[in-house]
Design a protein around this nucleic acid. Structure first.
Ligand SMILES: NC(=O)c1ccc[n+]([C@@H]2O[C@H](COP(=O)([O-])OP(=O)(O)OC[C@H]3O[C@@H](n4cnc5c(N)ncnc54)[C@H](O)[C@@H]3O)[C@@H](O)[C@H]2O)c1
Ligand SMILES: NC(=O)c1ccc[n+]([C@@H]2O[C@H](COP(=O)([O-])OP(=O)(O)OC[C@H]3O[C@@H](n4cnc5c(N)ncnc54)[C@H](O)[C@@H]3O)[C@@H](O)[C@H]2O)c1
Lengths: 218, 218
DNA sequence: ATTAAATCGATAACAAAGTATCGATATAGA
DNA sequence: TCTATATCGATACTTTGTTATCGATTTAAT
């Protein structure tokens, strides 16, 4: 529901979620001081179990670590980036250029993660023809043709919940292979299309439930 | 890393994530036609296992279901809402009123989920004093005092990654008990403070990894 | 009234993820 | 050079989460 189910390449879904944190942490280190980094140190920094870190790293890196010293930071970084696909760019389009859509369109950080959002689509005449951070906003009727022509694989849905399934169908029709869905609904897609849900309301529910329980404890 | 670890009230973390989808789905049904709803139907609609649905519902609802007919939709809705804490409001403040922060501040949907974002904080003079959807933007030096006075429990972090830990410390100092963190970094907090990470970059990594593998398959 | 079909709840089997342990090995310091 | 220690990788174990099965129960149709 939340994540993809399958675990590709021997890496579990949950492990995959941890990888960006490893990468981020290792990158944040002072290179001179930490040319090598060990599993226990990473584990401590990220509040994880040391064995888990070792296992996760083993799954994505052949570089291997040395007893006493740990792993070579540089190699880990490049292995993680390679594994996460940060080096190969996916082309994406976004549908629904409202508050959230605009935030995503203007975010630079995705480019470092191998996602290139080419343009936005909306049904609102007022916004069609404008651009957000240099990215054009186009009408929906251009969607299919452009996706085919530019071989876009990823579609981002930031329209209101009740429009989401319709837009989803349109994206599938346009040859999209993966959908990043921010609308709080379950989408129906053919088998060959991936859906990654980013359900902030669900996330919030988890937070508030835990908060309630945590406050109760005292 | 991604979620809270503990499973309160006999509901696993993963189950908790599914609950909002159940709620959403059941609410979307035509009341007249579906005054009762069965686990197999819900399972089919959300692409889940029937037994899992039954188990999840059993954990949050005492209403119980009847053979042949299923559960009473109305009761399920109210039990789910109650369990998820949608009836009791948490007060929140948000720090970092940039692209993403503005989107969150202007989103109405959180109110139905029991989250009330009172106001925003930023360090940028240009935005301080303005308001977003009726919510005031204040300078950081007002943060601590206001949080104490209004007994704010939830803090939302939407500042750049490198500022996040500092803001986090400030929130902890201000008595915040739960942090919803949108910056792609691991935050260090005392035991009694909850952190829910909303790491879009990590989410994207999962998506793009799966996409790559999925495209490879054919 | 009896029977057939659908669904429930409980239990049990299975699968996945996380953690502990242990021997092997590389390094730093005696 | 030798020894103590930190860390690795592999294996075994534990916990958590998912799925299958089965008897019991309710309803609707014969
Ligand atoms: N803003 C948030 O913080 C936030 C939080 C959680 C979830 N979400 C979800 O994200 C989605 C977008 O939220 P938002 O706050 O940006 O909403 P919004 O109303 O600001 O933007 C929606 C945009 O979609 C466009 N749109 C509507 N119907 C369309 C259609 N059929 N085709 C193309 N474009 C269409 C509208 O013109 C508008 O520009 C919603 O599903 C919402 O539930 C948003
Ligand atoms: N925009 C997105 O789509 C997106 C996606 C993924 C992650 N994020 C993360 O969310 C965070 C915010 O992203 P954004 O795109 O809104 O950035 P942004 O630059 O648009 O906004 C950041 C805001 O924080 C304020 N700020 C900076 N330092 C501050 C401080 N010390 N105290 C108070 N306010 C401060 C700035 O004035 C600005 O208003 C970042 O950590 C980013 O990595 C954003």
């Amino acid at each position: 529901m939340r994540n993809q189910e399958k675990d590709y390449s021997g890496v579990s879904v949950q492990a995959l979620w941890r990888l960006p944190y490893y990468l981020n942490y290792i990158k944040s280190l002072d290179e001179a001081k930490y040319s090598c980094i060990s599993a226990p140190i990473i584990a401590k920094a990220l509040n994880l179990n040391e064995v888990q870190v070792r296992k996760d790293l083993a799954a994505v890196s052949n570089s291997g670590g040395k007893p006493k010293t740990g792993y070579v930071a540089k190699e880990l970084i490049s292995d993680l980036e390679e594994f996460l696909g940060y080096n190969s760019v996916d082309e994406a389009i976004l549908v629904g250029v409202g508050h959230l859509g605009k935030a995503l369109l203007s975010y630079q950080g995705f480019e470092n993660c191998g996602l290139n959002i080419l343009m936005g689509f909306d049904k609102d005449e007022a916004i069609i023809g404008t651009n957000v951070c240099g990215k054009q906003i186009l009408p929906l009727d251009k969607l299919k043709d452009l996706c085919w022509r530019m071989s876009v694989n990823v579609g981002i849905i930031t329209v209101p919940a009740k429009e989401a399934q319709m837009i989803c169908d349109m994206l599938v029709e346009a040859g999209i292979r993966a959908i990043w869905n921010f609308a709080p609904v379950h989408l129906h897609v053919p088998d060959y299309v991936l859906v990654q849900n980013e359900n902030l309301a669900a996330s919030l529910a988890v937070l508030s439930k835990n908060l309630t329980e945590s406050l109760k404890e005292k």
